[in-house]
């Protein structure tokens, strides 16, 4: 997984004394249902709602849109909606 950006910047005030895994979960839960932008290794960018993740950083995005890199002939074109309706 590459660069991950979160809109409405997450509040990262950590509570001391909590176990690190609890904190990690809390942090991730705070990100749920927010817009996430993922930059893929092949240059495409995906923007969608962060819905789910696991230990290997697999991510499920909702209402995702795909943007191509600017060098592509179709750059700046309409984004493409992904996923089954």
């Amino acid at each position: 997984m590459e660069s991950m950006i979160e809109e409405n910047g997450p509040s990262s005030h950590e509570q001391p004394g909590m176990s690190s895994s609890y904190q990690a979960r809390h942090k991730l839960e705070g990100l749920l249902n927010k817009n996430m932008k993922i930059r893929m290794t092949d240059g495409r960018t995906l923007v969608g709602l962060f819905l789910c993740t696991d230990r290997d950083c697999n991510v499920i995005l909702g209402s995702a849109q795909e943007f191509l890199k600017s060098t592509d002939t179709f750059s700046q074109g309409e984004p493409r909606v992904l996923g089954w309706p």
Partner: peptide, 18 residues
């Protein structure tokens, strides 16, 4: 949008999951 880079943080947090 006010995008914030959370890559590192996110990866770290994920590692804590079972």
């Amino acid at each position: 949008a006010n995008w914030v880079d959370i890559t590192h943080e996110f990866k770290g947090s994920c590692k804590e999951l079972n």
